[in-house]
């Protein structure tokens, strides 16, 4: 009798695990089918190419004839290449302009959209426009605006009492000119991020501060900024990583010139690959770009998690 029930128990148990197993297998199948299309495209066009780039970077290769293995030769050459260091330095300038000009400007624009003034809808729409225009079109428009003779920027320069400046063909001004355009193009993007974050801040906090007699600056410093911190951090990540990828606007406006003054890793890689057909060397630059982006992302994530653990927010 006792043995009988035990047996039944056992059978039931086996049955249960079996059906569990079947349903789990079915589940795995379902998951695979759902994820497969996206994963396949992603593996083929994103994951595989990174490994292929790493592989190519160990060869001398013109893209068509046989590859010759050179080990770390391309990287050694790269570290001795003055142009690469210039490019890296210029990329750093883009990072600085993005983090310290673009993001604050985006914040100011977002704050203006909450100011007690009329015409906010208009301001909102127009402020956002630059982000929509294609980079190629933006580049061409601003090249014409920076034109030394017919450019409108020099009208402004003359108005301030200075001589015409050949912005884009002068080594000292080219970088500043292009960075101005970068700021113009991407500030609206950060405005949107900050706007979304500002909407989330409760009005009551400001009212309470008002009652305590806080002035506008104190409210900004003690309420707005701390509550925007997560957005500031994620904006900075986007800005830094985005700056490392910068290419289009520089390619259109200066092509890296004059005399390498605006050369970036992206433009240099492109030239080496598709103008000089140094595919191996270009792959080494490309892989370093990936590697730097990876390291920067990891560092920021680690700093973030440390700060979170310390109870910064959330």
């Amino acid at each position: 009798m006792n043995a009988q029930t035990e047996k039944i128990d056992l059978i039931q148990k086996i049955g249960r695990t079996k059906s569990k197993k079947i349903s789990r297998n079915k589940n795995v199948m379902t998951i695979c089918l759902f994820v497969a299309p996206a994963l396949l495209v992603y593996l083929l066009y994103v994951v595989y190419p990174i490994f292929a780039t790493l592989n190519y970077s160990f060869y001398n290769w013109d893209g068509t004839t046989e590859k010759t293995f050179v080990g770390l030769g391309n990287y050694v050459e790269l570290f001795k290449d003055a142009i690469f260091w210039t490019a890296l330095k210029n990329n750093t300038w883009v990072v600085f302009a993005s983090v310290f000009v673009q993001i604050p400007l985006g914040l100011i624009m977002a704050l203006m959209l909450f100011a007690p003034i009329k015409g906010l809808r208009l301001f909102n729409s127009i402020y956002f426009l630059p982000f929509l225009m294609s980079t190629v079109a933006i580049g061409m428009l601003w090249v014409l605006m920076f034109d030394p003779i017919n450019g409108v920027i020099n009208l402004f320069v003359n108005f301030l009492g200075f001589e015409n400046i050949a912005w884009l063909s002068n080594e000292n001004t080219a970088m500043i000119a292009v960075l101005l355009v970068v700021v113009w193009q991407f500030s609206p993007f950060y405005m949107i991020l900050f706007k979304a974050a500002l909407v989330g801040i409760s009005e009551e906090l400001y009212e309470a501060a008002q009652i305590d007699g806080a002035n506008t600056w104190q409210k900004f410093k003690n309420i707005t900024i701390p509550l925007l911190l997560p957005t500031i951090v994620s904006s900075s990540i986007l800005a830094i990583v985005g700056s490392l990828k910068a290419f289009d606007i520089f390619y259109i406006m200066t092509g890296g010139g004059p005399n390498g003054a605006t050369e970036l890793m992206g433009t240099y890689m492109f030239k080496q690959a598709f103008n000089n057909f140094n595919m191996g060397y270009a792959s080494a630059i490309a892989f370093l770009m990936f590697f730097i982006a990876l390291i920067v992302t990891i560092i920021i994530q680690v700093l973030e998690s440390v700060r979170k653990r310390k109870g910064g927010y959330e």
Binding site: Y45, P49, I50, Y56, F270, A273, A286, M289, F290, A293
Partner: peptide
């Protein structure tokens, strides 16, 4: 960075 995938 898109560049890391461009040549492949």
């Amino acid at each position: 960075p898109i560049h890391a995938t461009l040549i492949p």
